[in-house]
Amino acid sequence: MLRFIARRLLETIPVLFIILTATFFMIRFVPGGPFTAEKAVTPEVMRNLERAYDLDKPLWQQYTRYLRNVVLHGDLGPSFKYPNRTVNEIIADKLPVSLELGAEALLIALVAGLTLGVLAAVKSNTWIDYICSSTAMIGICLPTFVLGPLLVLLFAIRLGWANASGWYGPVDRVLPCLTLGCVYAAYIARLTRGGMLEVLHQDYIRTARAKGAGQLRVIFKHALRGGLLPVVSFLGPAIAGILTGSFVIETIFQIPGLGREFVNSAFNRDYTLVLGTVILYAALIIALNLVVDVVQVWLNPKLKFE
């Protein structure tokens, strides 16, 4: 297994390199630049601005220079949009917020999603299943930009239990985490139900049952292992997404997280910030997909590390 992980980590280097390079050049071909503004900047000023930010140099020179700074110094450069902050600072500042929001939402999603999914699968095609599945479907049908404001209207404005938005006290965590958690809970519930049903009828489960194993033991010891495969595959990229923040939730609730930077940096053509967030996200995706592959082997003893 260690060899497997070591090989995968080695593979990460070219993957990150390709992502970085592709993103660097992609964003330069997008119309509009960091200094495109409603009040047009005069050509002289634009020339001076580009010189000040080294944008007047040939693209490959900018690229090699950027690469050198990232690889040798871990320096992601200054932000174009926020000139008094560096990309490293912005990420260091905002990632913890998104991590916290994501971790709490993930907890809600896992607990609620797995419970609903397992219940629905075990009692498949009974009323319990219908209730659980429908609850999950509501989570899917209610987009976050609807659920968030609804929760605010109810709990903040009608009942006065929470603030409409902000990220100050513990109370401020509840509504955004709930909103974000609900969507993922719904996905997890659906995938768990599907995965469990696949497994519950497999021969080895029957064998276990025939051997007289109790229902709970069958579910948790045997069925859940195989049944979680699709959920685990889904969770790799999903966790990367959830931990790096959600644009919609962070905007609706005014949360100073990284999710807004992901989307806004592209809109602002903040070249360095785009690259910084992409590198971070890529690293997370790669790491989590590696974890998923390891977990999959662990869940399925028939597999071996190749």
Partner: peptide, 12 residues
């Protein structure tokens, strides 16, 4: 697949 995941969608 990992690479495709990480490329910024908006820009794409």
């Amino acid at each position: 697949v990992d690479i495709m995941y990480a490329l910024p969608f908006t820009i794409f």
